[in-house]
């Protein structure tokens, strides 16, 4: 059983990174549908650098950097040239999928060792709990720290207040003298960095090789997760574990011969997201509480 829980934790990590990054971008009012593309760019860069230098840690930084850079392309168009965010985001996913395949072509067929597990002294020796919580690779801890950081910055700091102000009413924020595009650029780049880290987790830990399109739709689940979490960081963490738990439960159910059709369990994360969307749409107060009012809307300073 604890082995299964461990699997749930690990499989949730890419979702936690990607979704909490996207959450910050969306709270600033930018809908970036390019998460899948940014994750793939992060994955291929992380693998290339980890293989070339022999250091998975450097690979991790490369993944974060590549993700941020890819997000920069989105920012150039969607913020700089005020293009439609939905179309630009979709284009970014297609672009990232293609470019990562091109860069990764010579890397196919190689394997690396991946990130080592860190045994935290004493705590790691606690029965069961030690294995579940204190024997992970560095990126698991980093994921939790980043969620905490996002929550703290958003809710308890001035920076968070500015991000939320820009996302909720960009005209007012502009009138108050904040650089709407500047804030959004940083938020989008941060989202890209986190998506890059989420992507990097695949070739660095989960499946230590590179293969084209290896994220297989996790970027889209991360997008759903942001809505599922109703734009609250800690709920992203919980939601990622729920999504991961459902995935593993349906696999384990099959191995144990449960009679629930696996297709039904496969659709549960999406079903949950739709239900949350319906709830948000029906409950205006709930929606107003968290959903950024200017999400996806183009900002023109002159208006």
């Amino acid at each position: 059983m604890e082995q299964l829980i461990l699997t749930v934790i690990l499989t949730s990590v890419p979702l936690i990174f990607a979704a909490s990054g996207e959450l910050i971008a969306e709270r600033s009012g930018v809908l970036n549908l390019g998460v899948e593309g940014m994750m793939l760019m992060g994955a291929v860069s992380a693998f290339a650098i980890a293989m070339g230098t022999g250091s998975p840690i450097l690979g991790m930084f490369a993944g974060a950097f590549a993700g941020a850079l890819t997000a920069g392309i989105f920012a150039f168009f969607a913020l700089g040239l005020a293009t439609n965010q939905v179309a630009t985001g979709l284009a970014l996913t297609i672009f990232g999928t293609g470019l990562s395949g091109l860069i990764g072509a010579p890397l196919v067929g190689h394997a690396i060792d991946g990130l080592p597990q860190i045994h935290i002294p004493l705590l790691a020796d606690i029965p069961i709990l030690g294995m579940l919580l204190f024997q992970h690779d560095i990126m698991v801890y980093l994921a939790v720290i980043m969620v905490g950081l996002c929550a703290w910055v958003l809710n308890a700091t001035r920076v968070g207040l500015i991000i939320r102000a820009v996302g909720d009413n960009h005209d007012s924020a502009h009138a108050l003298g904040y650089s709407v595009l500047g804030v959004r650029l940083l938020a989008v780049m941060f989202g890209g960095m986190m998506a890059g880290l989420g992507g990097a987790y695949l070739p660095l830990v989960l499946t230590p090789h590179w293969a084209e399109g290896m994220t297989a739709g996790r970027g889209w689940i991360a997008l759903a997760l942001v809505v599922f979490a109703s734009w609250r960081p800690w709920r992203v963490l919980g939601g990622a574990l729920v999504f991961g738990g459902i995935t593993i439960m349906q696999l384990a159910g099959q191995a144990r011969g449960w009679t629930i059709p696996s297709q039904f369990l496969s659709m549960l994360p999406y079903l949950a997201t739709i239900i949350v969307l319906v709830l948000i749409a029906r409950n205006r107060e709930f929606a107003l509480a968290n959903s950024p009012a200017c999400l996806g809307r183009i900002f023109h300073a002159g208006k």
Partner: peptide, 16 residues
């Protein structure tokens, strides 16, 4: 083709 899901399923088999 879904490397992460394949790895997850393999882990589940091993856990079982």
């Amino acid at each position: 083709y879904d490397p992460v899901k394949e790895a997850d399923a393999a882990k589940v088999h091993i856990a079982e």
